[in-house]
């Protein structure tokens, strides 16, 4: 069997595939963060908690109401989005004029409260959520055994990322959004309701987090700590890609997933830190991130 650095090439393909799966989560989550930062200038620390809330909602729907995975894949992101809109209307909107730090502190506090609430209600060990029947089983790709559900994760995330990119970059609504980001006063002067757009953007951004949460529910344990384990890496992804860059966050998310996957083979102990090493290097040479523009 052909080997690269002592690792059989087939095993390497397997790890690449897994890196892609993890990268998909990074992509969807960092996309939400990028959209929110681009529009609201808010560093949304509650993103991880809302991702967790999406997964918990999926579980609660199944447990209490008997609503299956497919419905929850639509309903949970909408509910999380509505929670986001409530947060934006009641709290965030008063902070836009202030320093970034205030938004960061507020959302960080919210994250702690949301996590604390679920921890108090359900404990930390988490809840079981099984893979939907359509996706039980696996594809035998020859070089690896790829669970069908993991393949679906990649497909679903990439579709959502692509749709978001298309909407922001190619549609009229997206054009309004970009205009409002660039110059809110002027855009408002053209008769576009900027506060409404800001509100919907935040709802959409956190809705993406909720969507990722539902996607993750069958693949990992559904518990109150699942968001905080992931969110720090996602922030690093956003920083590397460039704050506010949509394409940047998607490409970086996938790329870093793959790099992390490779690290797990060659130097597993470092797999939790490799993303931050890359972040440090990128910041040294391109402070605005790989895809960001200096202001």
């Amino acid at each position: 069997m052909t080997e690269i650095f002592g690792v059989p090439i087939q095993a390497l393909f397997g790890q690449l595939m897994l890196g892609l799966v993890n990268g998909s989560f990074y992509a969807v989550l960092s996309l939400g963060l990028a959209v929110i930062f681009g529009m609201l200038n808010i560093i949304n620390f509650a993103h991880g908690a809302l991702y967790m809330a999406g997964a918990m909602l999926a579980w609660m729907g199944m447990e209490y109401l008997g609503i299956g995975y497919w419905w929850m894949l639509v309903l949970a992101p909408i509910s999380v989005g509505l929670i986001g809109i409530a947060i934006e209307r009641l709290m965030l909107q008063w902070l836009y004029k202030l320093d970034h730090l205030y938004g960061l502190l507020l959302t960080f506090g919210l994250a702690l409260m949301i996590e604390g609430l679920f921890r108090d209600l359900y404990g930390v060990a988490g809840q079981p959520y099984s893979i939907p029947e359509e996706f039980s089983g696996a594809f035998n790709l020859g070089f690896m055994f790829l669970p069908k559900y993991r393949a679906w994760i990649v497909f679903a995330s990439l579709s959502v990322c692509l749709a978001t990119w298309y909407m922001v970059e190619k549609t009229r609504l997206g054009a309004y959004l970009r205009a409002a980001t660039e110059n809110p006063q002027l855009t408002q002067a053209f008769g576009i309701n900027v506060p409404l757009m800001v509100m919907l953007t935040y709802g959409f951004g956190v809705g993406l987090a909720g969507f990722a949460g539902v996607l993750a529910a069958p693949a990992s344990q559904v518990g109150p700590l699942m968001g905080s384990n992931l969110i720090i890496v996602v922030f690093a992804v956003v920083v590397i890609g460039g704050m506010g860059s949509i394409l940047g966050s998607v490409v970086t998310g996938l790329g870093l997933g793959i790099i992390e996957g490779m690290t797990k083979v060659f130097w597993p102990e470092a797999s939790a830190t490799v993303v931050f090493m890359i972040m440090a290097v990128v910041l040294m040479f391109r402070p605005a991130g790989l895809f960001g523009r200096e202001k």
Partner: peptide
């Protein structure tokens, strides 16, 4: 956050 790689 993910163990699939180690399990492989």
């Amino acid at each position: 956050s993910d163990f699939s790689s180690f399990l492989l």
